[in-house]
Design a protein around this nucleic acid. Structure first.
Ligand SMILES: [Mn+2]
Ligand SMILES: [Mn+2]
Ligand SMILES: [Mn+2]
Ligand SMILES: [Mn+2]
Lengths: 218, 218
DNA sequence: ATTAAATTTTAGACAAAGCTAAAAATTTGT
DNA sequence: ACAAATTTTTAGCTTTGTCTAAAATTTAAT
């Protein structure tokens, strides 16, 4: 499998929304910053190799082997992201480009070793689940922090309100994207939340929570 | 710089024996498992890019930029080898193939982060020196263990006698390739050696020492 | 139901990196 | 010194992955 083929497989996988819905030529071209004609060529080749199902003009989807291949790549990509953040102190937004390269390194022993070394992590720094060696993984969903039940744990992955005052306020409260948040309790009076973040408990208003997206696994 | 170009640059560097002697087309082809005609093509291309000095039929050598590029690659290769052995418990002889891939990952932050994370190692698991970020590094030489002065430290990199009895004996003494050895003392009587290996001191005959190669830096 | 618009595929070219076979240059042996 | 052997280069082809422009197909609109 070439590097290029692998990137196409991943793109088809992600566009299929973790389901295995059929995706269009243009969608792949857009995502990969390439031309539709190049996609047509590659998709025909992958089809001949039995990695995708493809009928001209009708779109493309991954076969069984295709899905397996995609999951192995996603696994590698996300494990490397964990490595970069946990061990080399990369920040949330610096990991993707490098992981995009590292995911193509071919060595089963390396992936297994990395997985073990990192303590078999279940999610990457963006809160996305890491498929197991066998390709099993939990679904993840994105929700507003004020809408999840007490006891929920997830990764802070975005803001609804991106105005400077709100971002500045988050900064003051030391809440950053990529932080893991655990909902400890909710006040009945004003629906404000007690959460655990970066090891310590803090108290935030419902209004804040209503503007923070959490990625929750399972 | 493409992956292929990088591998050629490294080959030319290594064939130049860490000096910058001129190397032949066939030597490159042999080392890279490719055909001389392919080498001719690539060498012309690298020459046009200012990475090698090349006169037809007269051999090739690295330019200043060529050497800098080669050293950066060697640095990455050897840092990854340290990572694989120290952190993921790869053995001595399993690292090369994977490092051959990892050395091509492009990210300055990654290399710097890795270097720091590994504690700025000076030699790789084979006892070869790791160039600094600026391209400085110490020379290394290979000597028989019985020929080095007291106080010498190096990596066990090979045996002179590779007969089963000797190898079996090394195994019993728990001396393996890749081990770091420090010469503590030498007995005047029989020139036997007290060495430190794997943290503890042991005593070995001169005959053993005379069949073990040590790679010494500086 | 046609026509227009958008999407997708095909045809033809190109750059990178490799190969084989043939030609050119250099080195070696006598 | 000169023929033979070896080394190196060139010429011509192949594969992979990309592109542009044109043709084909599907979808949307009137
Ligand atoms: Mn990638
Ligand atoms: Mn991620
Ligand atoms: Mn390499
Ligand atoms: Mn090495």
């Amino acid at each position: 499998m070439t590097l290029s083929e692998e990137d196409y497989i991943k793109a088809i996988y992600h566009l299929g929304k973790n389901e295995n819905t059929t995706v269009s030529t243009n969608a792949i071209a857009d995502r990969m910053d390439t031309k539709p004609s190049s996609v047509s060529d590659m998709v025909r080749k992958l089809s001949e190799k039995g990695i995708v199902n493809y009928r001209k003009y009708k779109g493309v989807s991954l076969t069984g082997t295709g899905i397996k291949t995609a999951l192995a790549l996603v696994r590698k990509h996300r494990l490397w992201e964990v490595f970069l953040v946990d061990k080399l102190n990369f920040s949330w937004d610096e990991v993707h480009e490098v992981a995009e390269q590292l995911e193509h390194i071919k060595s089963e022993k390396l992936v297994d070793g990395l997985d073990k070394y990192l303590g078999h992590p279940e999610v990457d720094p963006h809160g996305d689940p890491i498929p197991s060696k066998k390709g099993e993984f939990k679904k993840s969903i994105k929700k507003l922090l004020n809408e999840v039940p007490i006891g929920t744990k997830g990764v802070c992955v975005g803001v609804k309100d991106s105005s400077p005052p709100f971002l500045k306020f988050l900064d003051k409260k030391q809440i950053s994207l990529g932080d893991t948040i655990l909902v400890l309790d909710k006040e009945e009076f004003d629906a404000s939340l007690h959460i655990k973040i970066k090891g310590k408990g803090i108290h935030i208003s419902n209004q804040i929570a209503a503007n923070l997206y959490l990625k929750i696994t399972e």
